[in-house]
Design a protein around this nucleic acid. Structure first.
Lengths: 166, 166
DNA sequence: TTCCATGCAAACCCTTTGCAAAGCG
DNA sequence: CGCTTTGCAAAGGGTTTGCATGGAA
């Protein structure tokens, strides 16, 4: 789970595939692992632009793709305009609950999902590789008071999803 | 579940909201219910273009939005470029299994998901409204033979998902 | 020295929007 | 008649691509 082992995984993957170990790729990997919570490609790009080491959009997308392939990064698509990435090494697969009202994204993990995946795969003749579960709901607080402490503030900041997994 | 009752639901919804009952809206509703399986907005548009009653892109999207609101249509976002609509009146909420290899989309439904949703909502303080579960896998057939009967054929035709729900 | 990777900008895909004309209520 | 809907075409947002240049191996 430390950065060194993550870098080792990445480099091993690159080597296996005959891909090159470039400073840009390392830089992106480090930035990604410095993020906490889900982030957008644009956020990452901005983050890099503000650093001493600005990189191009193409390189960011290219590298994210590689990181997805070697499972160091996970991708979540929330609706049409909610494309988020997230470091994933050593993390258990998490699911997401989105608030329809304030846009906050919370994470959770339920072990029972495993059985469902297994059975569905078996029933439909597929080996399941991964999954994605999105719940859409409304904060109780909003329903009772009409107010929500997360409104707007977290709409653009899904990193507030400090995983209260159960 | 017959078309008449679907139209009744739609018209009632329009009336409630003070919206107009136009021939275009009725036409789109009927086309949507003539589709089997998930379809894209573009498929629907083409379908209409080939009919005696071509409609504009804007009208199609506008009407799909209305149909979503009154729950006569469901929307599924599969990754960045997989936006599918599907008639949903009288259907139980279905989940989807996507084949990474051939792109086929199969539907299934597992009652155990309900408990997971309930519990997650309770744990995170939200009233769950709906959900979306996507499993990604590979056909057994493809894994053993390297061949898949659904390859390409169904990549653009998710309607082959004649729901073997379990 | 050989390709692969990078950076730039333009293309891309799907969806939404602005505005004038049409037509429901 | 007024005001919503329609149709068209253009804009929008995030992602991908083409091509010349740069740099890892």
């Amino acid at each position: 789970m430390n950065l060194g082992s993550v870098e080792a995984v990445f480099f091993e993957y690159l080597q296996e595939r005959g891909l090159r170990q470039t400073p840009e790729r390392l830089c992106i990997l480090r930035r990604v692992y410095a993020m906490n919570g889900p982030f957008t490609a644009d956020t990452l790009l901005d983050d890099l632009r503000n650093s001493q080491n600005p990189l191009s959009r193409a390189t960011v997308y290219n590298t994210l793709e590689l990181l997805l392939e070697c499972r160091l990064v996970a991708h979540h698509q929330f609706g049409r305009f909610g494309s988020y990435y997230e470091k994933s090494h050593g993390r258990r697969q998490a699911d997401h609950l989105l608030c329809t009202n304030c846009g906050r994204i919370q994470e959770f993990c339920d072990p029972r999902l495993h059985a469902i995946m297994q059975d569905a795969g078996q029933a439909l003749g597929q080996r399941i590789q991964h999954h994605q579960l999105h719940l859409h709901g409304v904060c109780h607080l909003f329903e009772s008071t009409g107010q929500c402490p997360h409104f707007e503030s977290s709409k653009a900041d899904p990193s507030s999803s400090s995983q209260p997994m159960h």
